[in-house]
Design a protein around this nucleic acid. Structure first.
Ligand SMILES: [Mn+2]
Ligand SMILES: [Mn+2]
Ligand SMILES: [Mn+2]
Ligand SMILES: [Mn+2]
Lengths: 219, 219
DNA sequence: CACTCCTTTTTGATTAATCAAAAATTATAC
DNA sequence: GTATAATTTTTGATTAATCAAAAAGGAGTG
């Protein structure tokens, strides 16, 4: 059985490699997990020895097919749990990530299967992220960054790529939740900001914030 | 924060001290957790240093009030989770113990509170065990062992004090679940057995098995 | 009170995960 | 092409939890 720590490293590698192409640097991996580079190096070796990752010293690390499959299943558990917590236990969307971060390592396949059924085989989590299917299929919807949308464009919020609780609370309070339709009013490259019409209300975001919101173009 | 291991030791101590009176021996504690006596001794010291237990070397260990409170909350989490898995996720009563043994260490108070509400503040778990209340109240119903009931006695199953999956399956298949009413037909001290009428069916149990079934006397 | 038996504790090692700080390596700049 | 900066790896220590086996302690028997 894999330890929680190993599962967290696998998941981080999957996310950082952007679902499979480019090698991940030790430093990025360490930063994303909040450990020192030395700790990351040491775990990378462990993963490589277990056949879960491929390590080219000084040039980065990449999951093997086996490692990727395991990582995708951790992500599946994480997202099903998040949706379960929101839809069944009626928790807030900004608090379920932290909870799922722990639960993903201990819930059995049986429990996940039951949650999946109760939720009627969902494909999207509370933050708009796709839920990998039980057979390991994991597809990213092609989406655009809100920060790069043009003036006058009508778009639909697809996902929020930031799990920070206070950012999520902020987004929700301005109607920026998956599925919401908004319109880009103004875009000011110099001011580093974009102004939106959402929920009868006008709101201006800096590009950094707008970067965390991904959208789909509407009609 | 307490580690899972510490929580498991606290819970074992609570159970073995029969809710608070007698000292627990290192050997019994080790056996109940499946570790060597040396491991138990070492953890007992850790608990004593943390003020969670009181250790009299060579004479046993007992939880302090603080340790007991923590242990009771672990038991509360365990039993709410078990009931949740059975009632909401429709899992079998013989598989939820193993699951809860892991989940009890990671679910937040928030999640427990939500489950508690959804279950309408239950007081008994799927095996008939009492669920301690949020304020730490933990009362055992006074019950009798089925093995000591007299012939002709009508009783109601109160709890099954064995979490073994196959024993639970067996009990269920003969209608021996909490709430069921049964009648003692015969009792044979020499044969070490007791015969019951349950569910239109007659069934004979050895005293060892009957010991694991606790009952309440019926009018 | 000495001997034996059983239990408990101690000792010494091991494993997983981590950090701080030193050493090595790669990339970049002159 | 050597010096410098940044990143990565290595080294040595630490913590929690465990085990096997040796040492110590307690209780009962004669
Ligand atoms: Mn996690
Ligand atoms: Mn999510
Ligand atoms: Mn447990
Ligand atoms: Mn139970």
């Amino acid at each position: 059985m894999l330890t929680s720590t190993v599962e967290n490293y696998l998941k981080a590698l999957l996310m950082l490699s952007n679902q499979g192409e480019k090698r991940v640097s030790t430093g990025d991996l360490a930063k994303s997990l909040g450990v020192t580079p030395g700790s990351a190096t040491s775990m990378i070796k462990t993963l490589a020895e277990a056949g879960l990752a491929n390590h080219k010293p000084h040039y980065g690390v990449l999951l093997t097919d086996e490692g990727r499959t395991l990582a995708v299943h951790v992500v599946r558990r994480h997202r099903i749990i998040e949706l379960f917590l929101v839809n069944i236990l009626e928790m807030e969307w900004d608090e379920v990530h932290v909870e799922a971060e722990q639960l993903e390592h201990v819930v059995s396949d049986e429990v996940i299967a039951r949650m999946d059924k109760l939720l009627e085989y969902p494909t999207i989590d509370p933050h708009g992220d796709p839920i990998p299917s039980a057979d390991g299929t994991f597809i990213e919807r092609p989406v655009h960054q809100l920060s790069q949308c043009e003036e006058g464009q009508r778009v639909q919020v697809a996902r929020i790529s930031d799990q920070n609780s206070s950012f999520l609370k902020f987004a929700e309070s301005h109607g920026l939740t998956p599925g919401a339709t908004i319109e880009v009013q103004r875009r000011n490259e110099h001011a580093d900001s974009i102004t939106l019409q959402s929920n009868e209300e006008e709101i201006t975001l800096g590009f950094t914030a707008a970067n965390r919101i991904e959208v789909e173009l509407v009609g």
